[in-house]
């Protein structure tokens, strides 16, 4: 018993828990610690100077540009995640209710985009939304002006992010609905609830945890998105992740990049804690607490 936590003496438990723990320490904790350390140093013309200071955090907080990137990314991530959830719910619900024996096949279909690389998908989308793409190509062939708002704008980035992460959200909500007892809807109906009330009071709350997981799995990568704003965003579409990647690429300002990474990490943690603060997991379809 360590701090109230019961740890098995079975060596197999140590192996099963130990291997991923070592993996996490080596590939997650250590890089994170090194990033935190680097964020308190500075760089000067591609040289790392081990001079402890908080200048990088001061720059992020006061320079304005990085706060702008962060706000842009937060707004983009919230909009894209909300859109993905809004689209994914009816899709996943439709598969569950009307999928019949093709349910599994349909759900596997959502994984097809993952068989190609993210870069390939984004570049393909760039072509599709670009001046010679499906929409603008046809419009220009007909002598009309191209739709500028889908070419290299934040709107184009939003389309790209929805396209990239929608399959994940659909899959997560589908899995949540798969474990949901549909007879509860029938019960609600018997007691006089209409379809809307049944959804609001039964289906939605009991699948809230799955929905939140889907939202988070879209929100977090959107917050740090690099490729999509780079290829689709245009001159005013720089997001936080893209600016962060730039510090480790062209400009070589690694210490500032590390500080930006730490800020992003802390923000993500804060987001998760916020969810735990306001959502009662026991009433949201979460089964991880057991039956006790």
């Amino acid at each position: 018993m360590i701090g109230g936590l019961r740890i098995s003496r079975d060596p197999r438990a140590w192996i099963f828990l130990g291997v991923p723990s070592v993996f996490l320490v080596l590939l997650f904790v250590l890089p994170l610690v090194s990033m935190i350390v680097l964020s308190f140093w500075r760089t000067e013309n591609y040289h790392i100077i081990q001079d402890w200071n908080v200048d990088n955090y001061y720059v992020i907080a006061t320079a304005g540009a990085y706060v702008t990137f962060l706000i842009r990314s937060l707004v983009m991530a919230v909009i894209v995640s909300a859109l993905c959830v809004a689209i994914a719910w009816p899709v996943a619900y439709g598969v569950i209710v009307y999928g019949g024996r093709y349910k599994l096949l349909l759900s596997l279909g959502f994984a097809i985009p993952f068989l190609t690389g993210e870069v390939l998908r984004v570049i393909a989308l760039q072509g599709l939304l670009g001046p010679l793409g499906l929409f603008n190509g046809v419009l220009m062939a007909l002598g009309a002006a191209p739709l500028r708002f889908i070419m290299y704008t934040n709107f184009a980035s939003a389309i790209g992010l929805v396209y990239l992460y929608l399959p994940i959200v659909v899959t997560v909500i589908y899995l949540s609905l798969l474990n949901f007892d549909m007879r509860l809807i029938d019960a609600a109906r018997i007691f006089g609830a209409g379809p809307f009330r049944g959804f609001i009071e039964v289906t939605w709350p009991l699948n809230l945890f799955g929905t939140l997981i889907g939202f988070a799995l879209c929100f977090v990568p959107c917050l740090s998105a690099t490729l999509v704003p780079r290829f689709l965003g245009g001159p005013s579409g720089t997001l936080y992740g893209m600016a962060l990647a730039q510090q480790f690429g062209e400009s070589g300002t690694w210490a500032l990049g590390a500080a930006m990474g730490v800020v992003l990490f802390l923000l993500s943690i804060a987001g998760v804690l916020l969810v735990f603060r306001f959502v009662d997991l026991r009433r949201s379809g979460f089964t991880g607490f057991g039956r006790s």
Binding site: Y66, S236, Q246, T253, L256
Partner: peptide, 19 residues
């Protein structure tokens, strides 16, 4: 060539991107 100060240039570029 190499910029005279990559830090200064990065700030300029970030401000341009954020504007």
């Amino acid at each position: 060539d190499q910029p005279s100060s990559t830090e200064k240039w990065e700030r300029v570029w970030s401000r341009v991107q954020a504007a």
